[in-house]
Nucleic acid binder design. Structure first.
Lengths: 223, 223
DNA sequence: TCCCGTCTGTTGTTTTTACAACATTTGGAG
DNA sequence: CTCCAAATGTTGTAAAAACAACAGACGGGA
């Protein structure tokens, strides 16, 4: 496969951190990578299935979503360009507890997880680096999930919002920042009622805690 | 160090899965492992600190706990014998977002995380296996956290309880099972009010959904 | 054995959230 | 530009949870 058009994305991906373009190209081959495209709202993976490949978002955004029988939806995570999804399920062979949905037109590169995890017969020298990168990525995800649990553990709508928003401000290093969710999605991510959330946001703005416009928020100093 | 007394525990640990006693002994040495003991309620790690070692519980139980300024406590995870804690923070160098507390008299073996993650100069042959095991462990934790998020995402006390209890029943392969928490701890784990939880449990028992005694629960068929 | 601290369960009140129904705004497509 | 659909905001009501305060059960140590 010709990976030239994706090379810069792949190089930016934490999966290939520290590897040269040359090395990446050889690895992509070795791991029998494939590229697929998806439309907005299309399912990339469905809950319950088993998967054997790790996805890397080349462009677009996808959501990791948990949906129950009654259509209640909860967004587990937001995955953007250069980021991976499905590693945990592909590596363990566990049936998916979540679905993966394209939020917009998306292009994804898939890697066979078996070929990543095992040193290949031809003893491709960079597998070790790859596995180490993978370790780092999954470790990072653990921390993300821990943070999400922290938000969800708050008792009230307001506390959940503040927990999430301040973590985003911290991440961006700026009290003025943009979030990757619209209102409905944010409510699904924080597992709270959308209308109650909107009301609470308005109340917080009235109290001078923060300001917002669409997806842009600004936390105010409350000294 | 003489690891003989801990050998069976280490062999049962997923970290050393697939390694012989001989190999484990040499690795323990190579990773400059140390053993420490803690009393009930003693802090093993405190939130905010950086750690450079991965803990393996030799016996006893510890809780991964998130405490905020006002003393609100939320139990992130329960760690029993043979299990690891702190990997994510030790490997990334991130300051701890949680504390680790001994729930009873506990003995822990600590491994230097740097020495685990890097192939050692003397090229200890089993590091690769170790890293692969670590990858599996952390991947498994990701799935655990995902499950916890699923519980927390439920809207009501009852739904959270059912989500947690049925996952425990599934894990034990038996509708009759024991949980590692007392009532207060369960409430902290599920981020709900203890008294409301007790009330709800009573209500569910009245409705014939389940039965319980202390830490033992039984989910009934509701056909 | 008794005492005390902890755990568990109970109840009533207050506060908050979920829910439903609808109004308003926004952004695209034609 | 107009229309439509989706997103966002508003409000009132019903339901649920949080909170507080206390009673009873239990277990370990003196």
């Amino acid at each position: 496969m010709n990976i030239t058009p994706y090379l810069s994305t792949l190089q930016d991906s934490p999966l290939f951190q520290g590897l040269s373009a040359q090395e990446i190209a050889s690895m992509v081959n070795c791991m029998s990578a494939t590229v697929k495209e998806y439309d907005k709202n299309q399912y990339i993976h469905r809950m319950g299935n088993r998967i054997s490949s790790i996805g890397l978002v080349l462009f677009g955004n996808v959501h990791i979503v948990k949906e129950d029988f009654w259509g209640n939806r909860s967004i587990m995570a937001h995955i953007g360009p250069c980021e991976l999804f499905g590693e945990a399920y592909a590596l363990t062979g566990t049936p998916l507890e979540v679905s993966v949905i394209a939020m917009e037109p998306v292009r994804v590169m898939f890697f066979n997880s078996g070929k990543i995890a095992q040193t290949c017969p031809t003893s491709c020298a960079f597998h070790t680096a790859l596995i180490r990168n993978l370790l780092k990525i999954i470790t990072g995800k653990t921390l993300m999930l821990t943070q999400k649990i922290e938000h969800l553990s708050k008792r009230s709508t307001r506390e959940k919002l503040l927990s999430y928003l301040s973590s985003q401000a911290l991440r961006s290093g700026n009290p003025n920042f943009e979030i990757p969710f619209n209102r409905t999605q944010l409510a699904e991510y924080l597992a709270i009622d959308r209308s109650a959330m909107t009301t609470e946001l308005g109340r917080m703005r009235d109290e001078g805690l923060l300001d917002f416009d669409k997806g842009r928020f600004e936390l105010k100093q409350t000294i």
